[in-house]
């Protein structure tokens, strides 16, 4: 069976759930090889093993951290050359897609981005994508080179399965071209103690209707163990940081449950949450377009509804 390269998404060795999802998909296509770039590989090994990584390629050198995107592209290209994989899987985020794009050009490979499912077809992987704000589903395949596929977070439920997890250190060489865009400063995002927005099973989001007070939104999120999201109107008003914006120009989320409060449901917002499994909204305007999407909606003032609902959830949890 051929290898399937999976670029590990991690922060200093803390492996993100998205990587477990990719490893689960990779097992359908061949033998998953995790490609770990950066420091902390020891810490990552256990979790990579438990989702079926047969090999772990470890690349660790300062240059990989100091320059944008290209060193990772070169590392993956070299591994593709050496291992002739059946496919390369990456997480669909800003950086993942840029790596995928350059890798496709460099290795003469077809690229599919934002897949929500990957299956085995007659001629290699067949992907499913959800386009036009979720209104159309497309299946596609790569017809040239090694399929390079970026997969949206929360597209598949990770299934544990032990792999051999043989560690193979890989020597790193970084070209002059890769050193042309240097990262001169890095400020890690402060942890909120809440689940990561793109990985969370539940997201509670607030919009302009919060009037600037995200307190009730956060309290309800905490009662449900949820991540907090925001509409662009709330972000543009300075009420919540941009890192939490959901939508076309923010994060794409696909949780089990998405709760939109004080959000009208503009097309650009929908683009980032429409594939959520269950959608709930609280909005005082019965005509708000968000109600077209919901499984359950409350027409009412979010402040009173959220405060009361938070209390009841906490009471029921005992």
């Amino acid at each position: 069976m051929s290898e399937v390269l999976v670029l590990v998404d991690h922060v200093d060795g803390a492996v993100r759930r998205t990587t477990a999802e990719l490893l689960t998909l990779a097992r359908r296509l061949g033998e998953p090889s995790a490609v770990f770039v950066g420091s902390g590989a020891d810490a990552a090994q256990g979790s990579l093993r438990s989702y079926g990584a047969e090999k772990i390629y470890v690349l660790d050198a300062p240059e990989l951290r100091d320059y944008l995107v290209v060193p990772k592209v070169e590392a993956l290209a070299a591994l593709m050359d050496a291992s002739s994989p059946a496919a390369v899987l990456l997480v669909s985020g800003g950086e993942g897609k840029e790596i995928a794009g350059r890798l496709a050009i460099r290795t003469g490979s077809g690229l599919i981005t934002d897949a929500v499912d990957v299956r085995v077809g007659d001629a290699g992987p067949v992907t499913t994508q959800s386009v036009f704000a979720g209104s159309v589903t497309v299946t596609a395949e790569v017809t040239h080179g090694v399929p390079v596929i970026s997969v949206k977070p929360n597209s598949v439920t990770p299934e544990p399965m032990d792999g051999a997890a043989v560690v193979e250190p890989v020597s790193v060489s970084v070209s002059d071209l890769a050193k042309t865009a240097r990262i001169v400063e890095r400020r890690p995002r402060e942890s909120t103690g809440r689940p990561e927005l793109t990985e969370a099973a539940i997201v509670v989001a607030g919009g302009r209707g919060t009037g600037g007070d995200f307190g009730p939104v956060e309290a309800f999120a905490d009662a449900l163990g949820a991540a907090v999201g925001a509409s662009r109107a709330a972000v543009d008003s300075g009420w919540y940081p941009h890192a939490y914006q959901v939508g076309q120009t923010g994060k794409t989320v696909s949780p089990q449950l998405y709760v939109a409060t004080g959000i009208s449901g503009a097309i650009q917002h929908r683009a980032g949450m429409q594939t959520s499994k269950t959608i709930v909204a609280v909005n005082k305007d019965p005509e708000a377009p968000i109600f077209d999407l919901v499984d359950f909606g409350v027409v009412g003032d979010l402040h009173s509804v959220l405060a009361e609902a938070t209390q009841q959830v906490n009471a029921r949890k005992g």
């Binding site: 109600f291 359950f296 909606g297 409350v298 027409v299 509804v305 405060a307 009361e308």
Partner: peptide, 13 residues
């Protein structure tokens, strides 16, 4: 979906 109105203050429940 199901849409309820909070007029009677029962929406949260």
């Amino acid at each position: 979906g199901t849409i309820v109105t909070d007029d009677d203050g029962d929406g949260a429940r």
